[in-house]
Amino acid sequence: MGEPSLRERALRHLARRDHSRAELTRKLTPHGDADEVEAVIARMSELGLQSDTRYAEAFVRGKAGRFGSSRLRNELARRGIDRDLIDAALDSECLESEAERARAVLRGRFASAPADAREWARQARFLQTRGFAPDLIRKLLKEPYDESA
């Protein structure tokens, strides 16, 4: 059997999971020239097999429970998604508020409120790496820890 065509390669990638246009371009570029790759991706978009909007919404839906908006925004931008599509995906898919998501992430990782400055810094760093805003982190770590949650 010969080597698969660009179209077949694109279909294989898209059959596994949604890809952004930029990701698909990066994966197909070593196997054909730029015009061929662009034509194949344009055709996949026409057929509805590739959609940056659908990709962004699925990405946010899958990761919103673990990450803050700034991290989601940065990850999508890194994957070549347009800023307007990112904003639309965050608005439509993040049903919980940023504070509720941060609280859930914090409670899922740490069993108790910070007892000293070192533990406070540890929990703050954890939330910061997850992409939550510094003012939200300060607010969460100052509020009383609710054991029932």
Rank of each mutant, 00 (worst) to 15 (best):
I41C: 05
S45H: 01
D146T: 07
S45F: 00
D135A: 15
R12T: 14
E3Y: 03
L90I: 08
R83L: 10
R7N: 12
F110N: 06
E8C: 02
F59V: 11
T129C: 04
T29A: 12
Y145K: 02
S97L: 05
S51M: 04
R125W: 14
L127N: 08
G48M: 01
A99F: 00
A102G: 12
P144F: 06
L76G: 11
Q50L: 15
G65H: 09
R125T: 15
L49D: 04
K139S: 15
M44S: 02
S20E: 02
E143G: 02
N74D: 14
K139Q: 15
T129Q: 13
K139V: 04
C94Q: 14
A42W: 00
Q50S: 11
D135I: 07
S5G: 07
R130T: 04
E3T: 06
D87G: 09
A133K: 15
E143W: 03
L11P: 00
F59C: 09
D52T: 07
A99I: 04
D82F: 01
A42M: 01
A149C: 07
R118N: 08
A121C: 02
E38K: 10
C94P: 01
S5Y: 03
E36D: 11
L106G: 05
R109W: 01
R73S: 15
D146H: 12
S97N: 04
